[in-house]
Amino acid sequence: MPRLTHAPDLIRVSALHGYIELIESKLVNPDALLSRVGLDRKQLSEPNNFVQYQQLIQLLEITAKELNLPYFGLELGRWQSLNILGSVGYLMGNCDTLEMALKNLTKYYHVHQNSADLLLEVGQDYVKLSFLVRNSLKISVHHGADLAMSVGVNLLKQLTDDQIKLHRLELPHSGNENPSVYRQALGQLPVFNCAHTAVVFDRKYLKIPIKNSDKQLFSILSQQLGDLKDTKRENISDHVEVLIKQYLLHEDFGVNLIAEKLSMSARSLQRHLTKHDTTFRELVDDVRCNLAHQYLTETSLSLSNISDILSFSNYSEFTRAFKRWYGIPPKDYRKSL
């Protein structure tokens, strides 16, 4: 029986939004801290880059210890808002109600990271939103839990225009010697030593309308996110396909660029893909094939424009590829529709 392989547990770099600024505000150079976990400023400069979740957790724990910041996760969370979730955050901000926003968050959270799940439990009186790390890490997640809690509280307040009153906050660690800091940062004292990081609030708040939501924008974003595969599946090719679509027109597009976005070497990426019976070239070919069909059937773009969008070097190359995919030239394919 073949050995089961697992894709790296990944999270978007946006989860570290504010890290550089926060460390520099304490008159410390963050570069040395980043290098200890194999990261650098360049990687943190693009929010759509991915890093391994263990790298993020290690960075939080090392930073807290080295700088003697026992509440570092809480501090970093103050710098973050709905925007760190990218397209998922924009979708949430254009939902009709808080309930709709949270359901979409749990549905598409895998776009932000594949190492944890969000569970929304709606009871008769209360609602519980839990953050569940799927794979156990061999290091402390104290500050990771604090960061998740701080961000979660911020998002709920932002979505409800600060109307929500939280009933209970749960953290999976024992807290620190000064738990009142949590009250100051979160608005109330959490319950420590719980099974997971979670927020509990009255069910009535689910009906709070989201201010300035745009139904047309929601429809567009829903369609875009609906096209993304669920990257919770243990298959790194899902991540690679998303990045190929995103960077296909980039001047440096290629396996090296995509590997960089995943914080690994090109050789490591190719090795992971081989374990899943595919290659980078095959994934690029699949993405181009599917996009070509979509553009031909759903848009009025010219064939030359489609060729350019799919990053072919010339129209003849696009035509040869299309005939290999569908058996006929793209011009004839469009006429047959």
Rank of each mutant, 00 (worst) to 15 (best):
P190L: 05
L283E: 00
N178S: 15
G77R: 05
M149A: 05
Q163F: 15
Y108L: 06
A266D: 13
L249R: 12
Q184T: 10
L243G: 02
N49M: 03
H17Q: 11
L33R: 04
L76N: 02
L105M: 11
L22P: 11
Q58W: 03
R233P: 02
V191Q: 13
P30R: 02
L105G: 07
A185V: 08
Q55L: 01
R203W: 06
R320D: 12
E46I: 14
S336Y: 06
S174R: 14
E317K: 14
D96W: 08
V200S: 01
N135H: 11
L273I: 06
I328T: 12
I210C: 10
T279I: 00
L249H: 06
S130E: 13
E21P: 07
N68F: 10
K215N: 11
S81W: 10
E66L: 06
S81L: 02
I84N: 01
L171V: 07
N235R: 13
T299F: 03
L228I: 12
S263F: 03
L67I: 04
P8Q: 10
M1R: 14
Q58R: 10
Q184P: 01
K229M: 15
I11V: 15
L82Y: 11
D230H: 10
L105W: 08
L4G: 04
K323L: 08
S87Y: 09
E46G: 09
S136C: 04
R134F: 01
T231H: 01
W79K: 12
T160G: 04
G77W: 06
D308E: 14
S302N: 14
A148P: 04
L44A: 09
Y205N: 03
N212A: 10
K42F: 07
S300R: 12
L132Q: 14
E66K: 12
I62N: 12
D227Q: 13
P209Y: 01
L10V: 08
L85V: 00
L119K: 14
N114A: 01
H196K: 15
S130L: 05
E177Q: 13
L137I: 02
A198L: 00
Y71R: 09
D308F: 10
S316I: 07
Q188A: 09
Q223C: 02
R36K: 15
G175I: 04
I164N: 08
K65W: 09
H6R: 13
Q163K: 15
H293L: 07
L119F: 11
S45F: 10
D117W: 09
L76V: 03
Q184I: 09
D117C: 13
R41F: 07
L337C: 09
F322Q: 05
F318D: 00
Y53Q: 07
Q80N: 08
F318V: 02
K103P: 05
S302V: 05
V240H: 08
V127H: 04
G254S: 00
L105H: 07
D9K: 13
T297W: 03
S237D: 02
L186E: 05
M100H: 15
L69R: 09
L56P: 03
H142N: 13
D285S: 08
